[in-house]
Structure formats: structure tokens, C-alpha cells
């Protein structure tokens, strides 16, 4: 069993509306799994099913090979997008309460809270009320509460919203460290740069259907178009450009660098290799820049959603 979580043909209807249609995902152990999709695609529904907030109409969910059951809540830590804390309750009391709901004993919870409060240097907040904290500060508490019971599976829905860049980095490092310690992370966000940075697997849900999933590198390979970004130096710009255009499919390019006279995106035909292109170019001009164009997560997202 290499997958910590498997959702198998999960469907869910709300009245006449089909929120999830036969969606299957497999989250490998120790991965950071990006669950992506436009607004209203059904991500939150899937996440709620994994958290047993809702039951699927059909299909099943397995955690570590076992059919999901109520005891599993202590193996899952969930940071929902719509999140908050009891405003008039004290930070410490509240964290203890939420930890106990996850099945920790009071003494154990206290110990771990102390560790986390020291680690994030917020020990003096213990007796403050949530309403006295700023939004970012409250988010920190929320993060601690999510990970406190050391769950095998962590689900973060837009974890960085409300954080300044410094704290966002801090939380990002904590997530990476938790993964090092063996946790598996499901990560749902619209910020594609953090997907790029963190995720090794992704699944894309669009209009209640899963339209794409797999290893991010595999998907990128699948989406690449054998296009190369090229920067050349020559005195005869027009002539060089035209000769290239005769032999290859050429698209305009707009990368930035200091002193290239010709900037092009060149797409290879079926049989040509990058070496063929490179040797062709070196015979025509001085090559300063030669990079394969790899589609970004954002490109893949937009392209997939548009095509479906």
C-alpha cells in the first residue's frame, strides 16, 4: 500500500445538483498532493467527504487501506478555507478543547501546545482572547490546532490566506517539515506558484469531474509542446529570422535578457531533436539562450479548464 488515501469513484448530489461525479484520486504516502480546480468545481465537497463531514452517495474512501470510519478523525488534520475560532474564548482553553475533540488527553495536549507555542514564539498569547489577536495571529493558532494531534493526513485549504509573506514562509516551512516527519499533505489552493513550489502530485477537478491527475513532472511532460526559447546575437536579424521560419514553426517570445537581437519560441517538428535545432542555430548565429519551454502549473490549469 503506497497510497495513504484513496477515493474510489466518489459521487455526491445535492438535490438536482451533482457536486462530484465519479471522482477517484490516490494520494501517495509522504506526498504533497495539490487538489486544484476553479471555484465551485467540487474540491470542498471532496475534502468534506474525506473528513466525514458528508457521506458520499456512491463510491468509497480508504485511509491507509481501511474504509473510512469515525475513529479516523484523529488521523486527519483539516484546515478549512472557511475557518475561525470562538472569538470570546481564550487561546489556550480553546486549543485544549479542540485538541481534546481530536482525541488527545488534556496533559498530552498541553505538552504539545507548549512545544508549538514556544516554536512559533507565541507563548504569551495563552490567556488572550481570540478577538484580541490579529487575523494572522489567529491563523497561527488555527494552524497549530490543525497539526497538534500529529495526524497522518493533513488537509490544508488555502493555508496561506491571511498571512503576510514572512508568516506564509514560516507556515510553508512547517508544512515541509511535517512532510519530512512522515505526514501526507493534501493541499488545495488557487495560488499556482505555491503549487509549483510545494506539490509533487496534483489532481484537477472541473465541473464536478476529475479532468487531470498524476505526478506534477509527468503532467508537465505530457503538456510540453517541444518548444524552445531561443535568444540569438547576429548582425543580420531579418535574414536569420527568416531562415529559421522556413525550417521551423516559430512563435513570438518575450523573455527578458540583456542583449539578444533575436528572441523566438521555436517549436520542433515530430522527428527533430533539440540537438538538431541547436546545431542549426549555431550555424546561423551566436546562441546565448536555449531553454525548453516547460508549461507552468498555471498554464496547465488554464489550458485544461478551457478545453473542458
Amino acid at each position: 500500500m503506497n497510497d495513504l488515501l484513496v477515493a474510489d469513484s466518489v459521487s455526491k448530489n445535492f438535490g438536482d445538483f451533482r457536486a462530484l461525479n465519479d471522482v477517484s484520486i490516490s494520494v501517495p504516502k509522504g506526498s504533497i498532493f495539490g487538489l486544484l480546480g476553479p471555484n465551485g468545481a467540487g474540491k470542498t465537497t471532496l475534502i468534506r467527504i474525506i473528513n466525514q463531514i458528508m457521506m458520499p452517495d456512491t463510491g468509497r474512501v480508504l485511509l491507509d487501506g481501511e474504509l473510512l470510519k469515525p475513529e479516523h478523525v484523529r488521523n486527519i488534520g483539516y484546515l478549512p478555507e472557511e475557518r475561525g475560532l470562538y472569538k470570546s474564548m481564550k487561546v489556550g482553553e480553546q486549543a485544549l478543547y479542540l485538541a481534546q475533540l481530536k482525541g488527545l488527553s488534556k496533559t498530552e495536549a498541553k505538552e504539545r501546545l507548549k512545544y508549538w507555542f514556544d516554536k512559533l514564539e507565541i507563548g504569551d498569547w495563552w490567556n488572550k482572547k481570540i478577538q484580541e489577536l490579529s487575523k494572522g495571529q489567529a491563523q497561527k493558532i488555527q494552524f497549530i490546532v490543525t497539526v497538534l494531534h500529529q495526524p497522518k493526513l493533513l488537509i490544508f485549504d488555502e493555508p496561506f490566506s491571511g498571512f503576510d509573506p514572512i508568516n506564509a514562509n514560516l507556515i510553508k516551512d512547517e508544512i515541509l517539515q511535517l512532510r519530512e516527519e512522515g505526514a501526507t499533505v493534501i493541499f488545495s489552493t488557487h495560488r499556482m506558484e505555491s503549487v509549483e513550489e510545494l506539490c509533487d502530485h496534483i489532481a484537477l477537478i472541473h465541473k464536478s469531474n476529475k479532468v487531470l491527475d498524476g505526478k506534477l513532472t509527468d503532467i508537465k511532460r505530457q503538456f510540453k509542446t517541444n518548444t524552445f526559447e531561443v535568444g540569438l546575437q547576429t548582425d543580420t536579424v531579418e535574414m536569420v529570422t527568416n531562415t529559421i521560419k522556413e525550417k521551423f514553426e516559430v512563435l513570438p517570445s518575450s523573455f527578458r535578457n540583456l542583449n539578444d537581437d533575436v528572441k523566438l519560441n521555436i517549436k520542433l517538428n515530430g522527428t527533430d531533436t533539440s540537438n538538431d535545432l541547436l546545431s542549426f542555430l549555431t550555424s546561423k548565429a551566436q546562441v546565448h539562450h536555449f531553454v525548453e519551454v516547460i508549461p507552468s502549473a498555471s498554464d496547465i490549469f488554464i489550458q485544461t479548464v478551457k478545453n473542458n
Partner: peptide, 17 residues
């Protein structure tokens, strides 16, 4: 209503029924 407006509800019901 307070639990709804403070948005804590989803956190809680991921632990309890």
C-alpha cells in the same frame, strides 16, 4: 449562529458529528 459567523463550525465537525 455564533459558531457559524465565527466560522469555527467546520473545524469542529471535522472532529465530532
Amino acid at each position: 449562529i455564533e459558531e457559524k459567523t465565527s466560522r469555527i463550525i467546520e473545524v469542529i465537525i471535522s472532529s465530532v458529528k
